[in-house]
Structure formats: C-alpha cells, structure tokens
Design a protein around this nucleic acid. Structure first.
Length: 299
DNA sequence: ACGCCCGCCTGTAAGC
DNA sequence: TGCTTACAGGCGGGCG
C-alpha cells in the first residue's frame, strides 16, 4: 500500500528515468484505470507526442509535467505499481493496464490488480477552478501552491509533510482547530497529504501518543514531538526506499522491494514485544481498520 | 464537525 | 480437499 515514502521513492527514480523522454504510444488495456476520461482514446491522444519535463509529488500522487503544460497524474491506490522496462518483450505481469512507450526506447508499465488506483491527464484551466487562489489551511510552500494550481483536481490536498515547511507554532495552530482523534487527522488527506494506515501508526508510536488522543488536547511539547515524529519517520522511510510488506504489493520502479519494513516499531507487530519497553504490541479496530500501538509507550 | 459505514476491487489465508 | 469468509485499505460518498 504505497504511501508518501513509497511514492517519493518512485518519484526520485522516475526523475532519473523518464525526464526528457518522449511518449511515442500509449496502450490502455483496462479502461477503469483511466476512468476520469470519457474514453481511453481521449487519454491516449492527450499523451502521445508529449515529452516529460519533470516529476513531482503531492501526497500520494505522482505528477509528470508535460511539455504543453498538461500534467499526467498517477495514483497507485492500494495495489498499484509502476515499472520501468527496457525490453518491451519482457513478459507483462497480470493486471498491466496501461503502457507508455518512449521514442528513446523502453516503456513504463502501470500494473494494478485491485484497480483502486488511476491515471489521468490534467490541464491547468481544464476544470471549473475559478478560485484557484484558495489553498488548504496552513499552506505555506510556494512549490505546493504551484502544483495545486497546475492540477485543480488535487487542490483539496493538505500540506505535504516533506515538501511544505511549517513551524511548530503553525502546526499547533492547525491541530487546535480540530477536535479529531490524532490517527484520523493524520490520515485525512485534506489536512496533511501522504500518510496512510501504516505510517500513521509508526508516527504516533514515535511521538509517544495514542491514536485516539484529540488533536486539540496536545501540550506544546506533544505538538513538537508529533511534528518531529512525522517528518523524521517519513524521512527515514524514504532513505530505506519504503516498506514492502508480506503481501509484496509495493515494488519500486525496477521491481525491487523496499527496506523499511524491518524498522517498523508497531505496524503488523501484534503480540510482538515493543522495541522500547518489551510489552506486547496491541491491535485495535478503528473505523474497520487495524491500528497497532503500545499501551505503555503511547499515552 | 466528526465518526462510521459502504462500495469499489483482487489475492491470500484462515476457518469449517 | 474445497468451499466460504475475512482481511488488506485509499478514497469518495452518504448518513446519523
């Protein structure tokens, strides 16, 4: 389940692999993956002949800027993979739904068994985006603002914890406006973008905070701990090229597994001893989802 | 405003 | 062994 660290790893590799490459042909073999477009043909037409100029990321979304100001947006959902293949004759994995072939050779494959993910081409003025000046609360970064204006469909996303700098004071101000359980807030993409079930649990353990603490009830010290835990946990996971779980769903651009799963403190460790205090990690159901935490270390 | 559920999907694994 | 059920969970939508 790709979250911010996995998507950022892909972004870094895509920046090396596809920038300045020209899209020769696009093959769509499952229309559900391009469902925002009226037809697969329309999607193809928008991409064929375009050159990729840069690759950026907003939360869990990848943004490939094209030479005509359009943007190819890629979201991996639960089970999406992007694979860079040098030899088009390599056997295609099951559930390969979209293939971009480059003029310079090789191809980029989009594989997604559960089809929760999607790809679409966004045009700057292509949507009803009359008030492009309004940004999510706390938005401080010019970069994030530019990307949100470039892709109106993603204007609702909250700040990116890695790309958008924020002071502890400002973060605390945003927390105090919300009477929500911390875990739900961390996973709310309109508040902060890029954090899912796995990293919210890891961040809250690192911060020493329970998942059900109300956001508006944190002390100044706790606010600082949470902010630090968020940035450091995500940064460490990026250094380790993300997490590949037992289901093997996440693979990088070259099909290699990530390396951060060995550093997990709580996620998927029910009953195992807490790495800090040795008490067993507890699993709880919150909103139908599994939540892992340490009853001793998180208060 | 917020919590909680559903539907969308397939692969895997546990249970009977 | 083989069928059924649960689970994995991002996201948008609906409901109380």
């Amino acid at each position: 389940m790709p979250e911010l660290p996995e998507v950022e790893t892909l972004r870094q590799d895509l920046a090396k692999e596809v920038v300045n490459k020209k899209i020769k042909t696009v093959a769509v073999t499952n229309g559900r993956s391009v469902r925002r477009h009226q037809s697969a043909k329309h999607f193809r037409t928008l991409l064929e002949g375009r050159t990729v100029k840069s690759v950026s990321r907003l939360g869990k979304y990848l943004l490939l800027s094209l030479d005509n100001k359009d943007t190819l947006v890629i979201h991996l959902g639960m089970s999406g993979q992007l694979l860079r293949v040098k030899n088009p004759k390599d056997p295609k994995p099951k559930h390969t739904h979209v293939v971009l072939t480059f003029t310079q050779g090789g191809e980029l494959r989009y594989v997604d068994p559960r089809t929760f993910g999607e790809m679409f081409v966004s045009s700057p003025g292509g949507e009803a985006s009359s008030n492009g000046s309004s940004l999510p609360a706390g938005m401080a970064s010019a970069d994030g603002a530019v990307l949100r204006r470039q892709v109106p469909e993603l204007a609702h996303l909250g700040f990116d914890p890695i790309e958008d700098m924020m002071s502890w004071d400002r973060f605390g101000l945003l927390l105090r406006q919300r009477h929500t359980a911390l875990k739900a807030l961390l996973m709310d993409q309109e508040f902060v973008s890029g954090i899912g079930n796995l990293y919210s649990d890891e961040i809250l353990f690192s911060a020493g905070l329970r998942y059900d603490r109300p956001a508006d009830g944190l002390s100044a010290t706790e606010i600082r701990r949470l902010y630090r835990a968020m940035v450091e946990t995500l940064s460490e996971a990026i250094k380790h090229r993300g997490s590949t779980l037992v289901d093997e769903q996440y693979r990088d651009l070259f099909g290699e597994a990530g390396d951060y799963q060995g550093s997990h403190q709580v996620y998927d460790r029910e009953g195992a001893p807490c790495r800090r205090c040795r008490n067993p990690i507890v699993r709880a159901k919150v909103g139908g989802r599994s939540t892992f935490y340490c009853e001793h270390c998180q208060v």
